[in-house]
């Protein structure tokens, strides 16, 4: 097997990138082998999947930063549960651009670090920060023979609306220079207030601007989903409610990247 790579991104914060990539990893791992990679120095995906919030100390020098700098992810991958592994991140990831420059690494550095594990997983799910940076560009520049895809997160706001073309430009740049088979899997709505009157206009605008890219599934944010960061997945009595919108999304994602 060769891993399919799915990168969640948008150049705006608070669009549910970490939550969506975490839940997607969890759901996919029920049937297949998944490696989740945290490329955001805030480490929210790391905390979300491990339940650990003291990430600077607990994952000191055991993160994706070291994996990239040393050109091999294997020593830094941790097991979350059966079929689900994580390459964690912490705040020190902020030093990545400088360290890459010092070592003369290019934007294919993540590709090189992942090469030894590409055959070990069915899926590699990557969370990115809301910025144009190495942490965002490298995942998109990482090629897989099984396919690599971007999921564009959208929270229904004007800020995010204007961030979409910018993110798509990053995708185009990565495709042109490093990853010719990179595709956009789709635009995923994750609405903060599902009753907001502008949602309908936004949906129409996205459908007009980016035909066929919008996922049919719309994530409507719920308190139970937010509480996953507190309660975790195992033994969580409200898990079914928390994952309600993500189950159809993952099904749709699998169909789109088949």
């Amino acid at each position: 097997m060769t891993a399919k790579i799915v990168t969640f991104g948008i150049s705006k914060g608070g669009c549910s990138k970490s939550t969506s990539s975490g839940i997607t990893s969890y759901l996919l791992s029920k049937e297949e082998k998944v490696l989740a990679i945290d490329m955001d120095g805030q480490g929210n995906l790391t905390s979300f999947l491990t339940g650990e919030y003291d990430i600077c100390n607990v994952f000191e020098e055991k993160t994706v930063l070291e994996a990239i700098l040393n050109g091999d992810a294997r020593p830094y991958i941790i097991k979350i549960k059966e079929n689900l592994d994580l390459l964690p991140a912490n705040d020190f990831l902020a030093t990545l651009p400088r360290r890459m420059f010092e070592k003369g690494l290019k934007l294919d550095a993540l590709q090189k670090a992942l090469k030894p594990v590409m055959e070990d997983y069915d899926w590699i799910i990557i969370d990115t920060p809301p910025a144009l940076s190495e942490q965002t560009v490298m995942p998109l520049s990482t090629h897989s023979e099984a396919g690599s895809y971007a999921v564009v997160m959208f929270d229904g706001s004007m800020f995010a609306y204007y961030a979409i073309p910018k993110f798509l430009e990053i995708v185009a740049g990565a495709r042109e220079r490093y990853n010719p088979t990179l595709n956009v899997a789709g635009i995923l709505f994750s609405l903060i207030d599902s009753r907001a009157k502008e949602n309908e206009i936004m949906e129409e605008s996205i459908e007009e601007d980016y035909p066929d890219l919008k996922f049919s599934t719309i994530i409507r944010r719920k308190a139970s989903t937010r509480r996953l960061a507190i309660s975790g997945f195992d033994g969580n009595p409200e898990l079914k409610t928390a994952l309600e919108h993500y189950i159809p999304f993952v099904k749709e994602l699998k169909e789109r990247v088949r």
Partner: peptide
């Protein structure tokens, strides 16, 4: 050039 183009170009110049 856009910020994205400048970002990618900077890597070409870095080399």
């Amino acid at each position: 050039p856009s910020a994205t183009q400048a970002f990618f170009n900077s890597y070409d110049q870095d080399i």
